[in-house]
Structure formats: C-alpha cells, structure tokens
C-alpha cells in the first residue's frame, strides 16, 4: 500500500482544512484537483508528515509519516512554496538534499547531475538560485524531488509559473516516472493540466473529498446528471427521430450538421449507432461525449 487516509480530518483552530477523508492511493499517477482553498495543500502536507491529522490516521508505506521519517527514503516532494537556499547554486541545492537521503557525496553528485539534466537545467546549474527565473526555480525544485529516484513523487502545483514548453516537459517527466513504476500524486487547480497527466483523480472542494477514482467511473456514478453526446452527421433531423426511440434518451437538439442529445444510458446510444448507420445509410462523422471531462464532473460534484 502506498498511502492511506482513514477518516482524516484537519482543523486549523476553527478553520476546516480537511474533513472525513478516506482514500487509498494506488500506484500510477493520481491527480489532486480542486480550486484554491479546497484542501489540496492540507492533504499533501498530511501525506508529507508536515502536519498531523486532528482526527483519523494517515499512513505512508504503512507508517505514520509524522513519526517515522525513514519513510521519506522513497518519497520525492515538490512543495508549492517558492522557497530555496538562495545562496546555493542549483547544483549544490540538489546535491545537498540528495545527500540527506543517505547517498555518498559522489553518488549524490551523479544522481543530482542526472536529475538536473532531466529538467534541462544543466547550463544554469552552477548559478546561484537567487538569479533563477520562476520557471527555472520550479524545475530545480523538481530536480531535488526526483534525484533520488523515489517510489512516490508528491508534486504540489508543479506547473505553476512555467511556460508551455516547460509544462510539456514536466508532463512528460511525470509520464516517465509513472512508466518507471513510481507512484505520482500531482495537485493542481487547473483541470486540463491534470486531465492530460492522468485519468485517476481525487476531486476536492471546501475541505472535502467529493470523489476519487477513475474519471469515467466517477462520471458513471453521477446518475442524476444525464450524459451529453454530440453527433456530427449528414442528416441530423432523421437521425434524431431514430435516437428518440432509444431507451433513456431525454432530449435531442438539432443543429445544422449535428445533433446534441442527453441520455441516462449513453452506452445504449453507442451500441445502437452502428446499426442505425448501416440500416438507414446515415453518415456519422464524429461522436463526442461532452461532459465526461473533469470540468463537467467537477461542476456536477460541487453543484
């Protein structure tokens, strides 16, 4: 088991940080999603052992991260805050923090150099961190998190302040970590960023975990919100009549070369469409499920 939250609650005085969170983190990439103030940072701080739960228990590799620092041997942590030992060079920074994982000086140097290369900061690694741009600072933070080849990588808002090229690079790096067998937890308040990295999400809002699991599964549980499907076709009017005969279809809106329908049983639509197309000779150019994206799921969950 990588990490578990068992009925965890956290209060800061009278302010709620997290309420009744029960979650198991599975191997692979998990996106932690929610607007600012949703409780994402509290969640990650609890996981990183920086704060203790007010109620319930958090376990990382089977141990309490607050009491057993040895669990961090296999953890890489990228904090949200823009904080550094500003007088150090990027290289010194990564080597120092890698050495604290128990590596010899020479091994730590090699690991640090490899990590710096992966975040594409070799040329600037001998400059003091205080001279770094926002994107470079974010990348050197990432280098210290991955240098010791952790089994669990916790990334708190890793794409903040990065240009599109650097964002893409980080997303690729997350994928590489996943392919190498590491578990990655990545938090963001930008839905499409997470959507590009993973299908497994934890959706948070106002200190509560609203849903967690695979995106499609979560959408499947939201029965009271009919699914929206858009079909691009040559004869939308006729196709609409056929589709209205299918069970579960609630409404159909006809457009010039497309139709939008809402249904409680989207799978029935997908099953019936090939038959309709073959029997009646319609041409369907595209089928798009319109509200399976995270933004739609999130909207439904917090509604």
């Amino acid at each position: 088991m990588i990490a578990t939250f068992d009925r965890v609650a956290k209060w800061y005085g009278s302010v709620i940080g997290l309420v009744d969170a029960t979650i198991t983190i599975e191997p692979g990439v998990t996106g932690l999603l929610g607007p600012n103030g949703a409780g994402k940072s509290t969640f990650l701080k609890l996981l990183g052992g920086q704060i203790a739960p007010s109620q319930g228990s958090v376990e990382l590799f089977g141990h309490d991260p607050c009491r057993r620092p040895h669990v961090f041997r296999d953890v890489g942590y990228l904090p949200e805050q823009d904080a550094f030992y500003e007088d150090m060079t990027g290289r010194e920074f990564v080597i120092y923090l890698t050495r604290l994982h128990g590596f010899s000086a020479s091994r730590a140097r090699k690991l640090a150099e490899a990590a710096i290369e992966r975040v594409d900061l070799v040329e600037d690694s001998k400059r003091r961190i205080r001279t770094y741009s926002k994107g470079m600072r974010q990348r050197i933070k990432l280098a210290q998190a991955i240098a010791h080849e952790p089994k669990l990588l916790i990334l708190d808002e890793p794409l903040t302040g990065m240009d599109p090229v650097a964002r893409r690079r980080i997303m690729n790096l997350v994928a590489e970590q996943r392919d190498a067998g590491a578990t990655v937890i990545v938090s963001s308040h930008i839905l499409h960023e997470v959507e590009e990295m993973t299908n497994r999400v934890i959706l948070m809002y106002q200190g509560r975990v609203r849903a967690w699991g695979m995106r499609d599964e979560i959408r499947g549980f939201l029965d009271r919100y009919p699914h929206k499907v858009r079909l691009e076709c040559d004869n939308p009017r006729e196709l609409a009549l056929r589709i209205l005969e299918l069970p579960g279809v609630l409404s159909v809106n006809i457009e010039e070369k497309a139709l939008r329908l809402t249904t409680r049983k989207p799978d029935d639509i997908y099953d019936a469409l090939p038959g309709l197309v073959l029997d009646h000779g319609y041409t369907v150019d595209a089928i798009e499920a319109e509200d399976v994206g995270l933004d739609a799921i999130f909207r439904y969950l917090v509604a």
Binding site: G48, Q50, V71, Y77, Q81, L97, L100, G102
Partner: peptide
C-alpha cells in the same frame, strides 16, 4: 524561509 519542508521530507 519556508525551506523546512525540504528538511522534514527527508529520511532524517
């Protein structure tokens, strides 16, 4: 300096 996070997420 908010660097304590680096220290407290090491196996020390």
């Amino acid at each position: 300096g908010r660097t304590i996070t680096y220290m407290f997420t090491r196996p020390v």
